[in-house]
Amino acid sequence: MKYKTDNLPMLSIIIPVYNVEHYIERCVKSIIDQEYYNWEIIAVDDGSKDSSGIILEKLSKADKRIHILHVMNGGVSKARNIGLLNAKGEYITFVDADDMVKYDIYSKMIHEAIANKCDIVQCNYEELFENGSIRQITNSKKGIYTNKDDIIIACMERSIYANVFTKIYKKDVIQGIMFDEKISYAEDLKFVVECCNVSERISILNFIGYQYFLRSSSVDRSIINEKFLSVISVSDFFISKYKYNNFVYFYVEKNDVLQTKYLIDRISSQRGKMQKYLPILRKRILEKKDIIWKSDIYRNEDKIKIFLLCFFPNFYYFTYYIYNKFVKKSF
């Protein structure tokens, strides 16, 4: 059933596109097949060197709701910002060019936004692997959030997911909020938190609407470089913003500790110039160790790992390196 009526609000779907000639057509067709009809696609071709732009032009000729912007390569954040500046819809969402959406995702989310007067609506998603396996991500807590502190805590705890693509946003509410083009990692989380911070009502729905495709060829997830350190700058942004809110601050600190530990784990799993950052990152956790021991918001598993990291760092680094090199790769 197609929801084709002028009474329903337009949804702007922003797709940053870069060298995805093997995936972009199926992505767009999953949107064309939506039962919700009143949408526009803003596909920002970010200087693709393959035939992605040509494929988009062909799709645009067949469906006038598809708009193509060809720009010089500036990265995913800049491409999304260009999309935001050109969006005409009452609601906005994002799709990655190699992903797909299920046929009813936007009819359900728009209906929820209207029925419960929500500024943001979120659904669950699933990860698709190249070998055909699927992992469903359903750890969000269904309900409507109206308390600002609870909203930010839900962001830090990932009940409100750190990604931008599982949500629709009311354009008037998030007007002026843009992606930080200076950072390469955790830019989604920063954008989501800033949008949530200005929202009065956020609804979390318990259905899987988005399909996130994990390509082994798109990025080697075992490699880490200086760009990953932008995770720390995003953590510092949150710490500065919420340092006077005692209720939220514990969860902001927890996010910082776990994000820092994530970086340490990634760096420990390889050998190279990034090793020089281990003492700096470990110091961030050492400064907070007393708070961590006393807090009940950390899992015991995390506390044990942090204890080993603080007091037996070389053992921790070596163990994680061995685990990633021999054990993890065997599964």
Rank of each mutant, 00 (worst) to 15 (best):
E200T: 10
I54Q: 13
I174D: 10
E127I: 15
Y262T: 05
L11M: 06
S230H: 07
H22N: 15
V257W: 10
L59R: 08
T5E: 12
I14L: 12
E301P: 00
A62L: 14
R271G: 03
I202P: 05
D96M: 03
Y210E: 03
Y249T: 03
S12R: 06
I92H: 06
R221N: 12
I151E: 07
I92M: 04
K328E: 15
Y212L: 09
D302P: 00
E126F: 03
V17Q: 00
E35I: 14
K102G: 07
I82C: 02
Y321S: 01
F315I: 14
S235R: 02
K88E: 14
I105H: 02
D33W: 01
I177R: 01
V71W: 01
N300P: 02
V76Y: 02
E301H: 00
D50L: 02
I280C: 07
K78I: 05
K102P: 01
M100F: 07
K142M: 13
K283M: 10
D265E: 15
N73T: 08
N314A: 04
I239K: 14
Y242A: 02
I204V: 15
S295G: 01
D96N: 12
V76H: 08
T319V: 09
I144D: 08
Y91H: 08
T260R: 01
E21I: 02
D119N: 13
G74R: 12
K141G: 01
Y106T: 06
I183C: 03
K4I: 13
S216H: 12
V252L: 06
S233H: 07
D6P: 02
N197D: 15
N124G: 05
D172K: 15
N225I: 02
I223N: 10
R299W: 07
T5G: 12
F238K: 09
D296Q: 12
F331Q: 12
E130F: 07
K283V: 01
I160D: 13
R284D: 11
F326H: 13
S107V: 14
I144L: 13
A162I: 07
L56K: 07
F250C: 08
Q34T: 03
N206V: 03
I232E: 06
K329S: 15
D50S: 06
V95N: 04
V121P: 10
D149L: 02
S203H: 13
K227M: 08
L258D: 00
S60I: 11
I292N: 04
I42E: 10
M156K: 09
K4R: 14
N86D: 09
G209P: 12
N73H: 15
V193M: 12
K328L: 15
C310D: 12
N81R: 04
I42V: 10
Y145G: 04
Y169V: 06
L308D: 13
Y277W: 15
S216F: 09
F331V: 14
R26A: 06
S203W: 05
Y321H: 10
K289H: 13
D96C: 03
Y316K: 03
Y37T: 02
D33Q: 12
I55W: 03
I134C: 11
